[in-house]
Amino acid sequence: MFRMHRSRTVALAAIVALGLALGAANVVLAQAPSELVSRYVTTSASLTDPLAPVWSNVPAVEMPLTAQSAAPPALLQRSVRSVRVRSVNDGQWISFLLEWDDSTRDVRASRPDEFRDAAAIQMPVDASIPGGCMGARGKPTNLWHWKGDWQNDIDKGFQDVTQAYPNFWKDYYPFVVGKPPYQVPADFPSTDARTYMVGWSVGNPLSQPMRVTPVEELAAHGFGTATSRSSQNVLGRGAWQNGVWRVVFSRPMALSETDTVQFVPGGTAHAAFAVWNGSNQEVGARKQLSSDVTLSIEGNPSSTLPWWVIIAAGLLALAFGGAIVYAYIGLTGPRTS
């Protein structure tokens, strides 16, 4: 009895130790997931609603974030710990939902010392290359960059000087129309009127007051090279509620352009994520970012087999079922003689 107790105690201790070790390993694994499945949904995946019901049935992958310190200017301490990512697709469109905790809703970058919240997804054009590091020469990457101030421009109208400084007054600008205090863009219709707003005149995307989407699509091939793409295909929307941002990004899965990442049902791609917290003066390289995940794009389950296989399987099933019934009748004998 005593021996059994001791061996049982030792066995129990070993099991507990193993359990703890496994538990610790599980904790490590859970903090840096490497897989994200883009769930196939039958509703439309062309989504611009971060609160759409489809998201509640899709499990999230929680990506821990680390402060960027590979290149100056570095972020010395992260202000956002993790981002929860979900993805759905309907074979035509693919969408991602990024959700993260941020107690401040920073949606204006008008004053010289204010910065806005933002989030981005980085996906190499070559779907087999891991994401992160902003690409490399010969290995371009796509960036989908949602900005809080672009969202606010869309929701509330372009945030001009008057919105940042409510008592601002200016009685004249060359070639301006309308009445003071003048509003961009309505009161500056001509190119002459825009002469001194050079960012706007030369087409800098940051300076365009009329926004179509809050997400900017960029390409990069290394640190410091990110450039806005001439063709913009990503829709999106961000909403902040009770200290949580939820931002959806949405794009057609296949595009005719060759320099963008393509999403193939049943295929894979790679993605990494980044988040900026405006109240921590985060912008550009001052960001927190995640490690790479392999994105598995779920296709339509019913369309994964060829049609003739389905029909042949159905006929076989019928034949098999018929054979069982016949055997049963044969064994039990006819009811009537």
Binding site: A109, S110, R111, P112, D149, D160, V161, A164, V184, M197, V198, G199, W200, N204, L206, S207, P209
Partner: peptide, 11 residues
């Protein structure tokens, strides 16, 4: 170098 409130880039 100064930040432009309207164009949101620096000049």
């Amino acid at each position: 170098t100064l930040y432009n409130t309207v164009t949101r880039v620096s000049e």
